[in-house]
Design a protein around this nucleic acid. Structure first.
Lengths: 335, 335
DNA sequence: CTGAAAGCGCTAACAG
DNA sequence: CTGTTAGCGCTTTCAG
């Protein structure tokens, strides 16, 4: 059973295929009566225009690729809702490409090659370890892109990001004011939010109070996997305690809370903990976790909206859009 | 700057485009010397074969669509790793389509229409509310499919599933033997694992002991969102307590644990709780949550592997593959 | 307002 | 082993 093509409906409707093409593309120049006739046949034959053929003819695939390393998936997954919905409404297909961390030497290169071959109209990137390499490549191939999580300026590149430096500054500054100077920052291997910016914000706050921030002592590196970071913290809190620990992702925040309490450090009385993202993890822990809320769903939706604007040469106010955050105060901090 | 095409490399290499086509498709009939010459030009010109054109010529897109409702995303996201990796290794593109629950009347229909238009080679479906409608449509459009989470038998459809009935039976049977008869089952709106099967397993166990299972009393319906089900359980456990609660997803298990403890019901002493999926949620709660482990990553990878076998008419042992589960005993149950 | 015809970039017989 | 030639299904001038 062959697929029905535009020829079939043209023949059946007694018009040329050009006319059929016009009605399926909503061209306004078709006479209403002709249009109705064609529409009727399309319906009867259950004709579904072949996007592949159209893609070849127009050199547009109406496909957006999203590219990210597996290990960042915890962050990305939260945005897929927004990306998927926006994609559906704007009639774009969303194709996912994961760059495996364990994989071969040049996965990022290979993945971008696949994207080029598939002729995706544009890509969405997420801040991560290898973001610079990724940006390099989309520039090289001249693929329009938007990156989520960090701000990059380029002709064909937009960004959706938060002011990480400011967020970190404000949090740390507040504690410093209360003379809670013993603050550590938990840094995961992969993070949607740019770690450097966070750290620079922290430093800025310390500078403000003419206090030293020792990156070697006060930044703890860990994994994004709870299974890995929880044991690490269990060990750590056997002989450590701080005024506050600032984790960059809820999962790690929960790991800190659990590990600390397992070592009889009371949260928030002995130690306060605050994290970022405000996922449901933050609600599940006991005590519940204070967390910086990011508008995750919206960031995803905004990214595809912005990207489609770039693709269609629509007017754009700013290619770099900074979204707001909000601290959700819960029980792991005192105030 | 135009894209370089197969013509360009043919001209440059002084061969016909058929030959170029042969080398990029790994046909063995090309003389080694010619092949090298072509390869060299391909490299110099940085030629990336246009998949769209190839798709049109071969009527194959090497694209697999995965379709799921937003609300099932919690389950699906865990499989994306396996799906993405397998897709990459087998050189398939993975396109995601979300069926919005809130959306218009016939989202499933619209989404499948998009899939048809995009000419995806096959689709991966996930057990959910509307799975029957989805299956109906892939059959109608004759799209090869594999469904994850439930077993369906059809010519063009494979399945990756667990024996939910058996899982439920074994869990409940064990408690019944200890004369812990007051068991409730938490049923979410959307579930990857077929709820009916779970319930039928429970009933079977009750039958075995000639005990009654009252579906109206012993099945509690809830949301998949922690934000929604936690308050519901808080209210519920004000005047309820059971021997054991069996939740079909970790998130709900955690909600039960937290809500029960907030109402001074000790876990596991006063009440035991066990759930399914074994995600990291199960490790985060206090006490930690006993959970039925499903090989999530593998299920995703298996699904694309099976689907590609169906697509390529490879030999298949079984189109219905049942994967094993394992109970991960933790602190929310006594033994 | 509609039709004819030339592609879009590649594959796949069919010859040679 | 290699080249020629039709398509794949649709869009898009260009005429009419």
């Amino acid at each position: 059973m062959k697929k029905v093509t535009i020829y079939d409906v043209a023949r059946e409707a007694g018009v040329s295929l050009a006319t059929v093409s016009r009605v399926i593309n909503g061209s306004s120049v078709v006479r209403e009566k002709t249009k109705q006739k064609v529409l009727k046949v399309i319906n009867e034959l259950d004709f579904k225009p072949n996007q592949v053929a159209r893609g070849l003819a127009t050199s547009k695939t109406t496909t957006i690729a999203i590219i990210f390393p597996q290990s960042l998936f915890a962050h990305v997954k939260n945005m897929i809702g927004g990306i998927g919905d926006a994609g559906r409404h704007l009639d774009y297909n969303i194709t996912i490409y994961t760059t495996d961390d364990i994989g071969d030497d040049d996965t990022v290169g290979h993945v971008l090659e696949k994207v080029v071959k598939a002729r995706a109209d544009g890509v969405i990137l997420f801040n991560n370890d290898q973001i610079n390499q990724e940006i390099e490549l989309v520039k090289k191939y001249k693929i329009p892109a938007v990156v989520i999580g960090t701000c990059v300026s380029d002709d064909l590149i937009g960004s959706i990001y938060i002011d990480a430096q400011k967020v970190a500054f404000e949090i740390v500054e507040k504690y410093l004011k209360e003379e809670k100077n013993d603050i550590v920052f938990i840094s995961p291997k992969q993070n949607l939010v740019k770690t450097e910016d966070l750290i620079s914000g922290i430093k800025m706050a310390y500078d403000n109070y003419h206090l030293p921030f020792d990156e070697n002592q006060q930044v703890i590196h860990t994994s994004t996997h709870y299974e890995k970071c929880y044991p690490q913290f269990c060990e750590y809190f056997k002989n450590h305690k701080h005024d506050v620990v600032f984790a960059s992702y809820d999962k790690e925040g929960v790991a800190v809370i659990n590990a600390a309490q397992d070592n009889h450090i009371a949260i928030p009385d002995d130690m306060e903990v605050i994290s970022m993202m405000d996922t449901s993890y933050a609600l599940m822990s006991r005590p519940t976790l204070t967390s910086v809320h990011l508008p995750i769903y919206d960031m995803g939706a905004l990214a595809v909206r912005l990207l489609t604007k770039i693709l269609n040469d629509e007017d754009i106010d700013t290619k770099e859009v900074c979204v707001n955050t909000l601290i959700m105060k819960r029980d792991s901090t005192k105030q």
